[in-house]
Amino acid sequence: MNGFLELLSYPFVMRAVTAGTLISVCASVLGVILVLKHYSLIGHGLSEIGFASLSAASALGLPAMAITTPAVITASFIIMYVSQRYRTAGDIAIAIASSAALSLGVIVSSVSGQTSNMSSYLFGSILAMSDSDLLLSVMLSAAVMAVFILFYNRLFLITYNEDYARSLGINTALYQAVISVLTALVVVMGMRFMGTLLISSVIILPAVTARQIASGFRLLVVLSGIISLIAFILGLMVSFMLNLPAGASVVMVNAVILIIVKVLFRK
């Protein structure tokens, strides 16, 4: 414990903890909407498309974020549209697109001799967080919080019944677009430290855990954020103390919390 607190005195660790915590909380809050709308696979699909973009950008010597961010945002729009329009076929489309993107990323990394970066992309690196990442994660968190506070009533209605919202004349496509962009940004930011294979867990697990306890939408959103915060800090502590990969440790702590809650609050 003392060792962990001592580590926090290093600026790079503090930066990673702060940025990681903010992104995890954002991911878990957005995760509530994605889980309730049965879009759980989207985070997974987007992160693997992000991996392919990162690999391509790295192979071509292009700036990673400048290539990955628009690619993942575009993919987010397409995946949400396909999921909404074709339901079951949407899941199949996400599974195909994500595995194809992952394969493409592996091939591009391999051909371009960038395999050393591959592990960092797939499993993340806590050291990947820079000062600009910290600033971006603060801005992203502010945007997510603002959207949830300002548009809470709309998000509730659209998540519960999008058709009914449309019948009231509400522009559901606009809110869908906002959620798509925010989800894409969370995935792009989060996959740097969690890794492309694990970021979707941070989106889904806290929301699923909170769902076991919370009886209302508002409580579900708040609890999901709190669970994510606790799991991230605990996960990092475990990672530092046992010298384990940070992303994997955070996901394992999330999974353990889910199992405990599932047993204690059996509905």
């Binding site: 309730l36 009533n153 709309r154 509730f156 009914y164 919202a165 509400i170 769902r211 939408f217 579900l220």
Partner: peptide
């Protein structure tokens, strides 16, 4: 869906 009756009824005023 995790919602209470009052919350659902209120959405009709949106």
């Amino acid at each position: 869906f995790p919602a209470r009756v009052r919350e659902i009824v209120l959405t009709g005023t949106q």
